[in-house]
Design a protein around this nucleic acid. Structure first.
Length: 192
DNA sequence: CCCTGATTCGC
DNA sequence: GCGAATCAGG
């Protein structure tokens, strides 16, 4: 299909209304969104509602100068483009097992009382005589192989730290949190 | 991966 | 002039 006056008019209108190129292409029919964008550019209608945007910092593309282009084979696209999930420094990965929300509540509650309280009885069904330790407020940088890595708080919120108490060997958590972390299989309530 | 617009360039 | 391919972001 070609760009008749009507179609161009429609294009201008829709573009002015803020519809996306693909939407306009769909409405007009018979054209791809690329066709629409291309036309828009030719009509010099690009920059739409673009406030402070004097010049486009576009980086010149370099397919291959003056030669036969578009050989389909984009050649060495290799994996140089990073985006690698590699190991970004500073990134912390939460434990696979999401700590039960109960713990957070407890932690928070205990925190409000702040000092004084050194320990508190474990919540309900925990018949264990294991006592939950008050979390030492260890920062990410302060934890190591021997500190419990049970997280408290929300990394996105203000407070975020780790339990930090000593652990049994080979465990990332202290005795108490190891229990919470490694067995949850208790009966799951029918959520529905 | 979905989407957006921007750009290039063979046709 | 046209628009597919491609790019650069969100």
């Amino acid at each position: 299909m070609s760009w008749t006056d009507e179609r161009v008019e429609m294009l201008k209108k829709l573009w002015a209304e803020g519809l996306s190129a693909s939407q306009i292409a769909a409405k007009l029919g018979g054209v791809s969104r690329n066709a629409v964008i291309g036309k828009v550019h030719r009509l010099k209608l690009s920059g739409r509602a673009k406030s402070t945007k004097p010049a486009a910092p576009r980086v010149r593309r370099t397919p291959n100068s003056g030669g036969t282009s578009r050989p389909a084979s984009s050649s060495a696209s290799s994996g140089g483009s990073s985006s690698g999930s590699g190991s970004s420094v500073g990134t912390f990965t939460m434990p696979q097992r999401t700590p039960p929300s109960v713990t957070h509540t407890i932690g928070a509650t205990a925190l409000k009382q702040d000092h004084e309280v050194v320990a508190y009885k474990a919540p309900h069904r925990d018949t264990d005589d294991v006592v939950a330790p008050m979390p030492l407020k260890l920062k990410l940088v302060d934890i190591n192989e021997n500190t419990c890595k049970w997280p408290f708080g929300d990394p996105l919120q203000g407070e975020f730290y780790f339990c930090g108490h000593g652990n049994e060997e080979s465990s990332p958590y202290c005795k108490y949190h190891s229990k919470l972390a490694f067995q949850q299989p208790q009966d799951r309530r029918r959520s529905r």
